[in-house]
Computed example of a mutant assay.
Amino acid sequence: MAQLPRRTDRAAVVHVVENRGNEWCEWLAFRDLLRTDSTARSTYLAAKRTAEASASSWGEYIAQKYQVIRQLLAR
């Protein structure tokens, strides 16, 4: 299994998207969902932990989390 970067090894994670584009709106919707819905927060945290434990690469880790993000936003 590939070693994923540890949170303590970085100061920030930066996502660059087009200002007011589709991704911008989706990320804000997801942020707002996590702020207001404790079930969504718990689901996402569980997905992150599962992906961290099972992913063999950074790309796989992101892909696993993305599936859950899409499901949460579709509710």
Rank of each mutant, 00 (worst) to 15 (best):
S42C: 03
Q71W: 02
R41N: 00
S54K: 10
D9P: 04
L72P: 05
A51L: 07
L33I: 03
M1A: 08
L34I: 08
A12Q: 13
A11H: 09
R49T: 08
I62K: 14
L73Q: 15
G59F: 03
A12M: 12
N22F: 06
E26V: 06
R70I: 12
T39R: 13
G21E: 11
A47M: 08
V68P: 06
V16R: 15
T43D: 11
R10H: 13
A55M: 07
D32Q: 10
A74N: 15
L33V: 06
R7F: 00
S56G: 15
A55D: 06
Q67T: 13
R70H: 10
A29C: 06
Y44S: 06
R20G: 04
P5V: 07
P5R: 12
Y61A: 02
L45D: 10
W58G: 01
E23G: 00
Q3E: 12
N19A: 09
H15E: 10
S38D: 14
R41Y: 03
G59N: 15
R70K: 15
R7M: 08
S38G: 00
Q71D: 15
L73N: 11
Q64C: 03
V17Q: 05
L33Q: 09
L4Q: 04
S42E: 15
L73S: 11
A29W: 01
S42R: 14
A46R: 14
S57M: 07
E23I: 02
V13Q: 12
S42T: 14
N22S: 08
